[in-house]
């Protein structure tokens, strides 16, 4: 006689906590064949608002952590993913409808993406920053800094992106010290929430990564127009009206990264896209 299993309730992840949507809404997550898998929370604009508040509150601590520390915290995500690989393979293969081998390959890739970006934490500033030989008695240094709160739409392709796409979008945003509000893959959101559970037990401070399952088309306009959001990663927004999002973002001159097909390849540029170059001058004299 088979045991009756205990299915998980999938909720949102905001400020290190797992609330249901304030709207009380959920939506059905199904297999490719349409069979019910789970209910996911359908986040609302108010959840988005709360997530931005949580993300903003987390900026100072996260950006202020040492780069070495951020690197270790992000590497720890990879470690924990590796330890819970079976769960992720299961969720991916059920929701994406892919083979165990393909799901496993995606987990591998996601883990490797986290590791790749973890290593950049204490290096990107050395590549993107520099001393400047100005004509005068000045110490002059340019360093990249996190831009602040970034809202992101994770890749939405039904296959091959649910965990990997999230990593490929979120990791480069947070590695420099930004915090993120991310809308994960709508059709296959389970691994994103399971990742949030990993995050909650890892060393990532609450509010650094906030996960809002639901509809990009519904939430993105609120995030794009939110005055306390500094930048927008439209990686997975190719199928919604992203031009309208850019127009909204222009109101507060947000930095915007345009949509890409599939999963963005790991690249230093995805880190620097969400940084600001700060140049500090100081007088220099022996007298």
């Amino acid at each position: 006689m088979s045991r009756v299993t205990v299915p998980k309730t999938y909720k949102l992840y905001i400020g290190g906590k797992f609330p249901r949507s304030e709207s009380g809404r959920t939506y059905e997550v199904t297999t490719q064949a349409g069979e019910f898998v789970a209910n996911a929370a359908l986040a609302s604009r108010k959840d988005a608002r709360d997530a931005v508040v949580a993300a903003r509150a987390a900026v100072t601590g996260w950006a202020g952590a040492t780069a070495y520390n951020r690197g270790q915290v992000i590497y720890r995500i990879a470690e924990l993913l590796e330890g819970r690989r079976a769960q992720f393979v299961d969720e991916i293969s059920r929701t994406e409808g892919v083979t165990t081998a393909a799901a496993s390959a995606q987990v591998d890739a996601a883990i490797d993406v986290w590791v790749w970006y973890a290593g950049w934490a204490d290096k990107y500033a050395q590549i993107a920053g520099n001393g400047n030989p100005v004509s005068g008695p000045y110490f002059n240094l340019s360093v990249p800094e996190p831009t602040g709160v970034v809202a992101a739409i994770a890749p939405q392709a039904r296959v091959g992106t649910s965990l990997l796409g999230l990593a490929a979008v979120v990791a480069p945003i947070i590695v420099s010290g930004n915090t993120v509000v991310v809308v994960p893959n709508t059709g296959a959101p389970l691994s994103a929430i399971s990742l949030a559970e990993v995050l909650a037990t890892s060393d990532v401070p609450g509010g650094v990564i906030n996960v809002l399952t639901g509809s990009p088309a519904e939430m993105a306009p609120w995030l794009a127009s939110h005055a306390d959001v500094n930048a927008l990663d439209l990686a997975g927004a190719g199928d919604i009206d992203w031009v309208e999002l850019q127009l909204s973002a222009a109101e507060t001159l947000k930095r915007v990264l345009a949509p890409v097909a599939g999963v963005p390849a790991p690249a230093l540029e995805r880190i620097t896209a969400f940084t600001e170059t700060k140049t500090v001058w100081h007088t220099k004299s022996m007298l």
Binding site: G97, T99, A102, A105, Q106, D108, V159, G238, A261, G262
Partner: peptide
């Protein structure tokens, strides 16, 4: 790995992950 991850249950279909929209 990312390329392998796009292999579906039906098998074989791959799609590019790099082309910019």
């Amino acid at each position: 790995s990312a390329a392998s991850a796009t292999t579906t249950a039906a098998g074989g279909r791959k799609k590019t992950t790099k082309k910019a929209v």
